[in-house]
Design a protein around this nucleic acid. Structure first.
Lengths: 114, 114
DNA sequence: CCTATATATGAACCATTAGTTATATACAAG
DNA sequence: CTTGTATATAACTAATGGTTCATATATAGG
């Protein structure tokens, strides 16, 4: 139960959490599905999801007893941006990318993560 | 003295290490300069640099008693690539970027980091 | 209300690690 | 060879965090 102020960088530093995010890239999923796919214990999955939720990397949706988690790729922007500060060599391309990203964000409501 | 197998993600999860890399983005620097600029202790700087070196994020060059560290931005590619796997929405742009990156890598010998 | 299923949470354990202080190493200069 | 400067390393401390086991909460269905 990490109550410490963890940031996005620390969140994605954990291999299991990266695996979870990778699995969620295939679409919204419940805890049970993630447990089965990744072969980890249920409490561990819940706790990692809690961390990911604390940095807004995932969003939750209730459905009966299930909690359906879905990836929020926008929360990765701090990492993207930080890396961009070093890669000024291709900064021009990066700027184009950022612009494109902002456009995508605006119509990012009920988009197709599947 | 972290002898554990730390990866790039864990290396950049540490805020002080990100600050060090940020400082090195301005060009090659000695440990003393980093200590002054960042206001951290000398042993701490050396240890963080050791970690960064273990994942090839920095390269060292001896000059008299000094050790001059310089950023190796190419080592950030795993992070870039991993993030790219989620951001398939602008994948096309990303591919163009990757191509550009590979071109830059080839003429990355004694380039100008400053 | 009782049971089953799905998920979250608490407690305890153990490993890792950021940080400090003290000391060692490397090199240069006299 | 001694001194001074620059950096690395060792020993230690304290905090953090990943993991497991047990238990609690939530919801559905009889």
């Amino acid at each position: 139960m990490p109550r410490a102020a963890i940031d996005v960088f620390a969140a994605i530093a954990e291999p299991q959490r990266r695996r979870i995010l990778g699995a969620l890239a295939d679409g919204e999923q419940g805890v049970g599905q993630l447990v089965d796919r990744l072969g980890i214990s249920q409490p561990l999955a819940s706790k990692h999801l809690h961390v990911l939720r604390s940095v807004d990397l995932v969003h939750v949706r209730k459905q009966a007893q299930h909690r359906l988690y879905r990836l929020n790729h926008v929360a990765l922007q701090p990492v993207r941006h930080w890396i961009g500060t070093f890669e000024r060599y291709w900064q021009e391309s990066f700027d184009r990318l950022e612009k494109h990203l902002q456009n995508l964000q605006q119509k990012d409501r009920h988009d197709s993560i599947n």
